[in-house]
């Protein structure tokens, strides 16, 4: 279990670059949803992907740094309540680290299920619990408003994390090589 939180140089580099991609996607690559005026954030698919490969610390930091940085670029300052919620979601996604066989080149039925259950829990806690509570504590936003917003965000993020994260992990699994498997022929 301790292994889950081990941090080596590669984890740090993955965090730094993952956060750079997160920032970019968060600002520019939103897939418009069929519901008007809303869009799916591809960025959460990416934070879930990195979290599954590099663990909860990387996942939490990627979403936290990435969200804070893109807020800072767009609004001049991070909106802490949502930034923290993003970090929490990334952390929980990271619990899928070492629970799937993706590093061995397999990401099928059971692994897909594990990953998606974890990401659904992560998104639900972050957007239905953490973000609304912080908004209420800091800004005294009306509860009905923040919970409605939170549930909508959770659903959208579950869809985009699920679809994009799963596809990325399948693609990644295909690139993994098994022991002694490579020979010219």
């Amino acid at each position: 279990m301790k292994d889950l939180f081990k941090v080596n140089t590669k984890t740090i580099v993955a965090t730094g670059l993952g956060a750079a991609i997160f920032t970019l996607l968060f600002m520019f690559v939103k897939v418009p949803s069929p519901v008007p005026e809303t869009s799916f954030q591809t960025a959460y698919g990416v934070s879930a992907f990195f979290a599954t490969l590099f663990g909860p610390i990387a996942g939490a930091l990627i979403a936290f740094i990435g969200h804070a940085l893109s807020d800072a670029i767009q609004y001049g300052t991070p909106w802490w309540s949502w930034v923290i919620a993003s970090g929490v979601s990334g952390f929980i996604f990271g619990l899928a680290f070492k629970r799937t066989k993706v590093e061995e080149g397999e990401f099928k039925g059971k692994d897909i299920l594990t990953f998606n259950i974890i990401q659904i829990i992560g998104n639900a806690i972050a957007w239905v619990v953490v973000a609304p509570l912080l908004d209420i504590i800091i800004y005294q936003e009306p509860a009905s408003l923040v919970f409605t917003q939170g549930i909508t965000a959770a659903i959208m993020n579950i869809v985009s994390t699920g679809v994009i994260g799963t596809l990325l992990l399948i693609a990644y699994a295909a690139t993994r090589t098994k022991k002694g498997s490579l020979s010219k022929g």
Binding site: T177, K178, K179, G180, L182, S183
Partner: peptide, 8 residues
């Protein structure tokens, strides 16, 4: 030396 994934 033999890489983990290589056969040779």
């Amino acid at each position: 030396f033999q890489y983990y994934s290589q056969a040779e």
